[in-house]
């Protein structure tokens, strides 16, 4: 490495600290807001240091709910978000790993056709087929259900490609040794492929959990009942547009709670997060 000399060696620290500060500032302000009374925020003179109402606001948010249009306590929304994100992540991983296994380890008519059918869905994001998909989900009576929230989002060309790529790096000899050891396709999958895929599954889980948690457009359409809301849409519904009626302290506490799980996942599982993000883009 070519080293900096003299005073310029402090530039990186300066730039990075500034970057971190700018990136963190909105969240800091959000936290500060969540600890001040509603009227202090509403009159526009909120101090930029934390206020006295941390426990009160978060208790109210979690277990009572905002007094506005949405009365559901945020703990319910958190639970819904958690269930949805986990089901999407696990479901995507499960159906993708078996499809990739099929495409890589078997030879059968229409193998490539099946692969392309999955691949092309990369080009059909939910946003471009939103109303017809909604119509089908409603015809299948999936509105206001966890199945409706998750199953339509569960197909994954990205995850399938990711596993396929990984399977192609498993040496052929390992399959052959397994065959000689008397393992059939299902046993090879269970005893060898699955254990070998552990880190890949973990990496994918982190990415897909965040993806599921942050879903917005689909849950907004598919849920009508308040007790089925996820936290990300719940928060939006708490904002009464351009209106002083918005309970900003509750909104901001909800925002903090909505960020907490996925951000913690990124920070605590950073290694897998980075691996998942970088490798699924190949």
């Amino acid at each position: 490495m070519v080293e900096h000399r003299g005073w310029s060696r402090y530039i990186p620290y300066l730039v990075l600290s500034l970057g971190v500060a700018i990136v963190a500032f909105p969240v800091y302000l959000c936290f500060v807001g969540s600890t001040h009374p509603q009227d202090v925020i509403a009159n526009g003179n909120m101090p930029i240091t934390p206020g006295p109402l941390f426990f009160e606001t978060y208790y109210k948010t979690l277990f009572v709910g905002s007094s506005g249009s949405t009365r559901e306590p945020v703990s319910t929304m958190l639970l819904n978000s958690f269930i949805m994100a986990s089901m999407i992540a696990i479901g995507k991983i499960a159906i993708s790993i078996i499809s990739a296994y099929s495409v890589v380890y078997f030879k059968f008519p229409f193998r490539m056709a099946a692969f392309w059918l999955i691949f092309v869905t990369l080009m059909l994001p939910v946003e471009v087929r939103i109303y017809p998909t909604y119509k089908i989900a409603s015809d299948l009576h999936l509105l206001d259900s966890y199945a409706g929230l998750t199953i339509p989002l569960i197909a994954s060309a990205t995850a399938t490609l990711f596993f396929r790529q990984f399977f192609l790096t498993i040496p052929d000899e390992l399959v052959e040794a397994s065959k000689l050891d008397g393992a059939g396709p299902l046993r090879f999958f269970w005893d060898t492929v699955l254990p070998l895929s552990r880190t890949n599954i973990a990496a994918l889980f982190v990415i897909l959990f965040i993806y599921g948690w942050n879903q917005y457009l689909w849950p907004i359409l598919i849920t009508t009942r308040d007790d089925m809301q996820t936290i990300v849409i719940g928060i939006k519904k708490m904002i009464v547009t351009a209106d002083a009626l918005t309970e900003w302290n509750v909104v901001l506490a909800t925002a903090m709670l909505a960020m907490l799980p996925p951000v913690m996942v990124v920070i605590l599982m950073q290694r897998w997060f980075v691996k998942g993000l970088v490798e699924t883009e190949k």
Binding site: V20, P26, L29, W213, N214, I233, L252, V266, Q270
Partner: peptide, 22 residues
């Protein structure tokens, strides 16, 4: 620094919107 810079990826777009409108 890396850790402190990558976490906004995990923030839901709608929540990011709330932070900035606030």
């Amino acid at each position: 620094y890396k850790t402190l810079l990558i976490w906004p990826y995990a923030v839901a777009p709608a929540v990011a919107g709330v932070l900035w409108i606030f």
